[in-house]
Design a protein around this nucleic acid. Structure first.
Length: 417
DNA sequence: TCTGGGGTCCTAGGACCC
DNA sequence: TCTGGGGTCCTAGGACCC
C-alpha cells in the first residue's frame, strides 16, 4: 500500500494573531504579536484567564489557561485584549477556504488546526515541501496571519512536526527523522501526554520521547492501561487514523456550561441558569438534526470542587423543555447546597432525529413542544439569539441564553465547524 | 474579582441477569 | 452451609485535547 502524505496546518497563536491582524486593519499601529500580550477573558465576570498569548508573552512564562492575575504578576504591564469569537470563526473559515483549494479531504481538528490528506495529490504536487510553503505564504499574504505546517505519513507525526519551531515555518517529520527530530523532545511535548501522565513518566525516569519509545511497552501498559500503549505507539511514530471530515453525524455529544458572575445560592436561580444553558444547547442539538438519550448536569462550587449527575432516558429527545426538566431533577438530586460558581448541561448518546420528527408517540404535548422549539429556532436564526427570550429572565440579571453564543449573536464555533 | 468553555475517551464499581 | 462467575448496563469521575 502506498504511503499516506499528511499535512497538519496550525495557525500560530491563533486568537492572539487574529485579534492582532484585526486591530492593524482597523488602524492600530501596534502589532500585538510583537509585544507581550494576551487575549484574556473578563475578570469582572470571573472569566479572567489567558486564552492565547503572544510569543514575547510566552518568554515571561505565561501559559494558556492561567489566571490573568498571575500573568500580570509575571509581566507587569502586559497588554490584554478581549476575545472576539465571531472574528475567529471568520479567520478559521477563511483559512479552510484556502486549504480546500489543495485537497478535498480535510479534517478540522479545532478552530485553528486542520489535517489535510495529500496522498493522492502528490503526483500533482511532487514537491510537497514547496507546496506547503506555497500554502503558508498564501495564508500570510491573503489573510495576514502565519501558520506552521507539519508534513509526514500520519496525523500524529504531522502534528508533532507543525509544533517543532514557530512561527511561520514548514517542517517534515518522516519516520526516518523520528530519532533525530522527535526523540530528543521532552516527553510532555508528545500529543496525549498531559500533566498527570508526565508526572508518572518522570517517576519511571522517562524524560524524553526517545526514552518513552525505548521503554518496555508491557510495563507501561500495566501501569497506564490502554493509554500506556497509545503513548508508546505515539513515541514510536505509530498512528494510523484516517483524515476524516468533521460533521454532525459522528458527533458524540454536546454541552454548554458557564461560570456565573456571582455565586448562586438558591435553587430557583440555579434552575434559571440551567434553563439558559438548555436554550442554546437544545437549539444546537436540533440544528445538528440529532436527539439525545442522556442528559448530564455538572456543578462547580465556589471552592472549585466539581461534581456531576447524569441520567439515561427511555426515549430520544431534542426539546428544550424536556432537557431542562431533566436537568432540574438531576440538579435537585445532587446539589449539596454550597454556593455555586459554575453550572453545565450536556447531552450525549445522540441519534438521528429523523424518526421522531414524525411524532411516534401521538402525544399532543410532544407535538406542541416541537412546534414551539421550531418556531423559536427560526426566529433566533433570522433575528439573532436574543430576539426572543423567556420572560422569566427579565430583570433577573441572568443571561436568557447562555453558552454556545458569541457576543455578536453568532452561534459558537462548534456548531459551525 | 486567581483558576473558561468546548469536546473525546477510558476506567472503576455497583446493579442486575442468567 | 462466608466469599461462583461471566456478561451487560449504568453512573461518576478523571485524563487528555484545543
Amino acid at each position: 500500500m502506498k504511503n499516506k502524505l499528511i499535512f497538519h496546518v496550525d495557525a500560530n497563536s491563533a486568537y492572539l494573531s487574529w485579534s492582532a491582524v484585526d486591530r492593524l486593519q482597523h488602524g492600530e499601529n501596534l502589532d500585538l504579536r510583537e509585544v507581550p500580550s494576551v487575549v484574556g477573558g473578563d475578570e469582572k465576570s470571573r472569566h479572567g484567564i489567558v486564552l492565547a498569548k503572544s510569543i514575547p508573552a510566552k518568554k515571561y512564562g505565561i501559559k494558556t489557561g492561567e489566571p490573568l492575575l498571575t500573568a500580570r504578576r509575571k509581566c507587569p504591564g502586559i497588554i490584554s485584549v478581549p476575545p472576539k469569537y465571531e472574528l475567529y470563526i471568520k479567520c478559521s473559515n477563511a483559512m479552510l477556504k484556502i486549504l480546500n483549494q489543495y485537497s478535498p479531504i480535510i479534517q478540522r481538528f479545532s478552530v485553528d488546526e486542520c489535517f489535510m490528506d495529500m496522498t493522492d495529490m502528490d503526483n500533482l504536487y511532487d514537491d510537497f515541501s514547496g507546496l506547503a510553503n506555497e500554502i503558508r505564504e498564501r495564508i500570510k499574504n491573503e489573510l495576514g496571519f502565519t501558520v506552521n505546517i507539519g508534513i509526514s505519513n500520519n496525523k500524529l507525526l504531522a502534528k508533532v512536526a507543525s509544533d517543532l519551531r514557530k512561527p511561520d515555518m514548514v517542517h517534515t517529520l518522516f519516520p526516518n527523522e523520528i530519532k533525530e527530530k522527535m526523540w530528543p523532545l521532552s516527553v510532555e511535548d508528545l500529543f496525549m501526554v498531559g500533566r498527570a501522565t508526565t508526572e508518572k513518566l518522570y517517576k519511571l525516569n522517562i524524560h524524553t520521547i526517545g526514552e518513552l519509545a525505548n521503554h518496555d511497552r508491557e510495563m507501561l501498559e500495566s501501569l497506564l492501561k490502554s493509554h500506556g500503549r497509545l503513548i508508546w505507539n505515539y513515541a514510536n511514530g505509530i498512528e494510523e487514523s484516517e483524515v476524516r471530515k468533521s460533521n454532525f453525524i459522528n458527533m458524540k455529544g454536546m454541552g454548554n456550561s458557564t461560570t456565573i458572575s456571582f455565586d448562586v445560592e438558591n435553587r430557583t436561580t440555579a434552575h434559571m441558569v440551567l434553563l439558559s444553558l438548555c436554550e442554546s444547547l437544545g437549539m444546537r442539538l436540533r440544528n445538528s438534526e440529532n436527539c439525545c438519550r442522556l442528559v448530564a448536569v455538572s456543578i462547580r462550587t465556589n471552592k472549585l470542587e466539581t461534581y456531576s449527575r447524569q441520567r439515561k432516558i427511555d426515549f430520544p429527545i431534542d426539546s428544550t423543555k424536556y432537557i431542562a426538566n431533566i436537568a432540574y431533577k438531576l440538579f435537585d438530586e445532587v446539589w449539596r447546597g454550597e454556593p455555586i460558581r459554575h453550572l453545565g448541561v450536556s447531552v450525549s448518546e445522540l441519534c438521528s432525529n429523523e424518526f421522531s420528527q414524525v411524532s411516534m408517540f401521538d402525544d399532543r404535548d410532544i407535538d406542541k413542544n416541537k412546534a414551539i422549539d421550531t418556531a423559536i429556532d427560526k426566529i433566533r436564526l433570522k433575528y439573532g439569539a436574543n430576539s426572543i427570550v423567556k420572560s422569566i429572565f427579565l430583570h433577573s440579571g441572568i443571561k436568557p441564553i447562555n453558552g454556545g453564543v458569541g457576543e455578536g449573536d453568532y452561534p459558537v464555533m462548534t456548531s459551525i465547524l
